[in-house]
Every structure is written in C-alpha cells, then in structure tokens.
C-alpha cells in the first residue's frame, strides 16, 4: 500500500515510540483519557463532580467512585486538562495528521466511510457501518476500562515490561477478536 511502511521499518518506528515514552516519562496509555474527556465535559455542567479536597492524596476528590479512585487521580486530571497524558493524546492525533500529510498512507473517499472488507461483506451502507462502529466503540472502551487499559497500555506497554497483566489482556483480547473477525467477515 502507498506510503505504508513494511512490518520491519514499521515495527522499529512503533517500538521506538513505546521505548522513548517510557525512557523519558512513562509507558504509553490511551483509554484512560476517554474517561478524562467525559469528566471534563461533565465538569462543565456540574458544580460538584470534581472538587478540591486537601484531605485527598492528589488534592482533588469526586463523589463518583471511579473519578475518586487512587486518591482522586482522575478527578485531578479532569480539573487540570493540561496534563501530560491528556496532551499526549491530542498530540497523537496531530502526529497521525502529520504522517498522512507527509507521504503516509491515504484513505480513499469510500474508505473514509467503511473499509473495503466491510463494503464487500455488507455493501455500501454507511449508516449501518456508523451504527455498528458506535456500538463497537461502547464495547471497546467499557472493556478497556474494566481491564484497566487497552491495546496500548496493556498489550504494547505491558508486554514490553513483561507484565503478567499485559499477557492476560492480550490472551483475552485475541481469544475473542479472532473468532469474531472470522465469523463477521469470514476468511474469504
């Protein structure tokens, strides 16, 4: 495919990204930031979802037990969106944009609604694709939060550190994903 790196060069580049992140700051993770983004919006409409609390470890607390977890860690990041992990995610989208503008692989017009493998199986029905992907998104992020991380945090960063949780996560994810993909899209 045009602009796409082969597995070796691509693997080197991807591996370097994960290694540099842990060398300079900490392992890469993405899915927590969906919670932070929700919290930021919630905080716009609520006066008490996140409040300063000198008694808490981070100085912030929330009546919601998830945002209040680990001494109010998420509550603190909701209150201060300009923090490392949240800015990292925004920069990640910008980095992808940079790559696509500087000779990276480009998505054709039909591919922007649904990938070819979807269109071959279900036809040109963008509405069906959008609805399905929306529900898939709910599953993916609910699952990632239950697991405490996603493909980046658990699988890539986790297995890089040889953490047991990374291997368990990868086993659970592929044990479900491979049969599901074969069932939905077939092997043809």
């Amino acid at each position: 495919m045009n602009g796409q790196l082969n597995w070796f060069k691509g693997g080197l580049l991807l591996g370097a990204a994960f290694l540099l992140a842990v060398a300079f700051v900490k392992p890469i993770g993405v899915s927590t930031q969906f919670v932070i983004a929700d919290g930021i919006v919630w905080n716009l409409f609520s006066d008490d979802i996140v409040r300063e609390d000198p008694a808490s470890k981070t100085g912030y607390a929330s009546p919601n037990s998830y945002l209040n977890k680990s001494g109010g860690k998420y509550a603190k990041n909701v209150a201060n969106p300009v923090n490392y992990s949240f800015i990292f995610i925004i920069a990640m989208v910008a980095g992808a944009l940079l790559s696509s503008r500087l000779g990276g692989p480009r998505a054709g017009v039909p591919d922007r609604s649904a990938p070819e493998v979807w269109r071959q199986r279900f036809g040109d029905r963008p509405g069906l694709r959008y609805a399905t992907v929306f529900f898939a998104g709910i599953l993916v992020l609910f699952g990632a939060r239950l697991a405490g991380g996603c493909t980046s945090g658990h699988m890539m960063s986790g297995m890089m550190q040889t953490s047991l949780s990374g291997y368990l996560f990868a086993a659970g994810a592929f044990a479900a994903a491979i049969p599901a993909a074969v069932l939905v899209y077939t092997r043809k």
Binding site: W118, G137, G148, A176
Partner: peptide, 17 residues
C-alpha cells in the same frame, strides 16, 4: 483484565479500531 480484554476484542474485531 481477561474479561475486559475479551469485550474489547469483540468491538475491536467488528470495528477494526
């Protein structure tokens, strides 16, 4: 971790994201 991974895997397979 395993159960959440499996839920994620289902959505991952259908969406490709």
């Amino acid at each position: 971790v395993i159960l959440g991974g499996a839920l994620l895997g289902l959505g991952f397979a259908v969406a490709g994201y």
